[in-house]
Design a protein around this nucleic acid. Structure first.
Lengths: 261, 261
DNA sequence: CGTGTTATTGACCAACATCAAACTTAGTGG
DNA sequence: CCACTAAGTTTGATGTTGGTCAATAACACG
């Protein structure tokens, strides 16, 4: 243990630190979690519905999403997962997966045996509480999405999704000069917001026209955070992030995320 | 402890038994939970948003719901809660409530101090796991709602909500001759499904016309479970109920919940 | 018995879906 | 490095689900 945690373990630790205090001892324990690494292509299935699983899937790089496919074949994306997330943590206590897990863009993941996680929870009850908290925040995000899909306009939904992705990326230190990666196609954005591809395209054009955002390649650039936040009716409270200097500015009305040019 | 659990504690135990095995020892521990009882009127606020809480709210009788009020004043109901549910279990690990909790129709609730629940979890790790599982199932239900509001038609959504309420009521032993209580106004049904009151009314009339359901007063009567299930694209898997003789029939395609007339 | 809530109806409208085609970009193999 | 191909984006025309507004009818409760 003379050396610190691997880059892979550090992702997980960093993520947990955004939602709870993680003691040095707990970090050491986390750093010893066995991991089976895997590279994934764009739109790959990481986990299929109805599969019983014996491992948890930790996202290391890239973006992943939970999804359901309904009777008529329409897909609904249920949540977005950034590096450090363990989207199927619930499989520890739920025998069958009630949804699928797919990648958006390419990336890397690590699979951790359930046994190792259980052992960790037994030995470190406080860490177990942190993981429980993580699943609770996950549920809270789901509720915000539900409210949005149920009651917000298309513009608000898209803007809201961008706001959320930005704040979460930022908390993980994944922002670069007001820009962050959001490797989703417009069809995928539609699946996430309950809209058609065509309509997503039009809304995105509006947002660009209003000079709230731009993008180059897979990167989204927020030009006017405050107006975007207003357009989205966004309040980061539901993310239950631990307040740190880095994120606090974004949560407050003030700051512009724009580049200084 | 010569006497069994009170009727109030029995509700909680019964609910937990629908999702996990609860040992006799655990039942005894649950039966000793301190409770502050409260009667609530229809559409009463049980818990307000943004309030830090020191207690958990256990629904004893009637129906409750989580909700959010968005910028323009529209309300979205996020989940339904039946007797035995603890809708704000998350407050154990999340300091601020990201949504409100209200009653639908009148009923009774019990407030349990956080301290007592925490102690219970410390002493009975298996029970803690069961509570964690409960919050995970709660999240799973939320995902199903999200998929529905995002991608299902109005008919499917309403039918789905009825199917879910039926199966959950049934698991708790709250069904009576194919009928169960669903004390919601059409406006509330609209808030739960992301529809307008007017449209809910029309869909309900269709469902009645198609002889899938009827209602008298607050009770819904399912006339043709199989066709309703089909109309709703309903599959109870996401409820992660423990299979028992009582519910298993309902989960399978077979059974009719209709009365034998 | 009022009186306020809830349900129902009709007319009209808007947001968003669908369909189909063209255009652009990015990735791939030669 | 270029040409080819598939994926993704953009546009226009048209359709439909479900929203809004407004008024009336049924209830339920004090």
């Amino acid at each position: 243990m003379a050396q610190g945690p691997s880059a892979e373990h550090a992702r997980l630790i960093r993520k947990l630190q955004t939602i709870a205090v993680v003691t040095a001892e707990e970090q050491d324990a986390l750093a010893e979690l066995p991991m089976r690494l895997r590279v994934f292509a764009a739109s790959a299935d990481l986990l299929r519905e109805d599969q019983p699983s014996t491992e948890c899937c930790l996202i290391l790089e890239g973006l992943a999403c939970r999804y359901k496919v309904l009777g008529a074949g329409q897909r609904q994306i249920l949540s977005l997962h950034l590096p450090g997330d363990i989207p199927d943590l619930m499989s520890l206590h739920l025998q069958t997966m009630d949804h699928g897990l797919a990648s958006l863009g390419r990336g890397r993941a690590a699979y951790i045996p359930h046994g190792a996680v259980r052992e960790l929870c037994d030995r470190h009850p406080q860490l177990a509480a942190t993981l429980w908290r993580d699943t609770l925040i996950d549920a809270s995000i789901g509720r915000e999405w539900l409210a949005g899909v149920g009651r917000r306009t298309a513009h608000e939904r898209i803007a809201h999704l961008i706001c959320e992705a930005l704040v979460r990326s930022r908390a993980l230190g994944l922002m670069d000069e007001g820009a962050f990666e959001l490797p989703m196609t417009q069809a995928e954005l539609g699946d996430a917001t309950g809209l058609s591809t065509v309509h997503v395209n039009r809304v995105l054009q509006d947002l660009r026209r209003e000079e709230l955002i731009t993008w180059r390649g897979r990167s989204i650039l927020v030009l006017d955070w405050e107006r975007l936040r207003l357009a989205a009716d966004f309040d980061a409270g539901y993310l239950h992030l631990l307040r740190d200097a880095d994120t606090v500015a974004l949560l407050r009305p003030r700051l512009r995320t724009s580049l200084a040019d």
